[in-house]
Every structure is written in C-alpha cells, then in structure tokens.
Design a protein around this nucleic acid. Structure first.
Lengths: 111, 111
DNA sequence: TGTCGACATAGCGTGTTTGCTATGTCGACA
DNA sequence: TGTCGACATAGCAAACACGCTATGTCGACA
C-alpha cells in the first residue's frame, strides 16, 4: 500500500518549537483551514478529506505561494508535531494533530 | 514623581505578535522568573518587587547576556503587551501582564 | 522502459532576529 | 554644573526565516 505517516515531535513536545511553528500568519491560516477540510478545500476524488486531510496542492494554491514554499510551511508544522502528513499513492494529505494542539493550548495556560 | 508605565499592545492583541514574542527560550524564561520575583531575584532596596516587578539589571544578569541584549528581549515582551515596564527614578521594573497572558492562553484554546 | 503528475529537496537572494560594543539620555547627588 | 549609575538606542556581524526557480524522487500508467 505504501502509506506513510509522519510525526516528528511528541504530543508533549518542546513548547518553544510549537510556538515558533505557530508564529506565522500563513501557518495559522493553514491550521484554521484544516479545521474543516470539506468546506475550505475542493473535493478530492482520491483521499478521504475527513480522515486523511487536505491535499498538499490545494493548501499551496490557497496559500498563494509557490509549491516549494507551501511544502516547507507544512513541513514546519509537521516537524513541530502539530500536523500529521499522510503519504499515499502520489499524494500527500495533511490533517491537524488535535492532541498536540490541545496539549500546546494546555501548556499555554501555565505560561 | 516621573513614573511611566509602558504597554504597547492591547489585551486582545494580535495573536501572531504574541506568539512571536513567546517563541524564544530566553523570553519564556523571563516570563517564568517574573511569576515569582521575590524568590527568583535578589532583594531590591528601591522598588517593590511584588507590585512593580524585577529590576532590569537583575533580569539581564540572570539571562547571561549583555545589558542591551537583555533590554531588547524585554522590549519585545513589552511591545507585545505581555510585560509591563515601570520606570521610576533611575530604575526600570518589569512585571507580567497577567491579563494579556491569560488572553493569549485563551485564544490558544481556539487555535 | 519512458513519461507524467505530485511533491520534496537544493540552492540562492533578501529581510528579520540576536548577539555584541559603543554611545546617548536622564535623574540623583556632590 | 559635573559626574555616576541605570538603562535605551545605534550600528554592525552572524544566524535564521522566507520567498523564489531549478531539479530530484517516486509511484502510476502507457
């Protein structure tokens, strides 16, 4: 099948890393869009929008940047553990890591 | 008397600005130290540690950086509205802006 | 095997951050 | 008025972030 899921940081990761990943307009937008993939992105014939997330190309297009730039923003989020990448067939899907995001929000209460 | 309080951003400020200010080991440390000025810093004969906060020099020394570098880190926090600076006599005191910090934490819950 | 579509990586120019030293400002006090 | 202590600002170099174009990789399909 060749399905690969990528998550670098743990749920209770380094707060600084998460904050650096979040301190960007475009990455905040991506996270917001991923809250509701179905309404924020065109339909995908290939991957399940709900379980797997949004296709890389759609995110890049909506961001209004070049494909490599968009991919790098997504990589920052993945490396921080805030987003999960699912690679299948030719496409890569991205979805929110809700556990990590709520963990960060929880840590922020003790800031 | 010549007492000046400085707060640039509002309580419900730009989340990105707050996150950028927070995405730094040293600034996170400062905020943590300011939670308990009395135990984290030497006694001050001049300013009230509880109501006014910690003296600039003590923070700089504890940070282990030069005085201008420390001052700039503090300025970033002040500009983001997360810390309040009180200038009196020759000294400048810094204390946490709890309202702003809890506001940021609250916003993070909707991230 | 060859090509094509979807990303990922490399490399580069530019702007921002972070450290420093040097210097300016400003109130207190001799 | 002059000096000193406590910051703030200016200016500079190194490191990092972010945009792009060019190119590599890799699975699907002819």
């Amino acid at each position: 099948m060749a399905v690969t899921e990528t998550t670098t940081a743990e749920t209770e990761g380094d707060l600084k890393v998460a904050l650096k990943a979040l301190a960007s307009d475009k990455r905040l937008k991506i996270l917001d869009w991923l809250k509701d993939v179905k309404t924020n992105f065109p339909p995908q014939e290939h991957g399940n929008q709900v379980t797997e997330g949004a296709c890389n190309l759609f995110i890049v297009e909506k961001l209004g940047v070049s494909q490599p730039t968009g991919s790098r923003h997504l990589k920052v989020l993945v490396d921080a553990g805030l987003v999960v990448a699912t690679r299948r067939k030719g496409w890569t899907y991205y979805r929110r890591n809700e556990d990590a995001l709520t963990a960060v929000a929880e840590q922020m209460r003790g800031i």
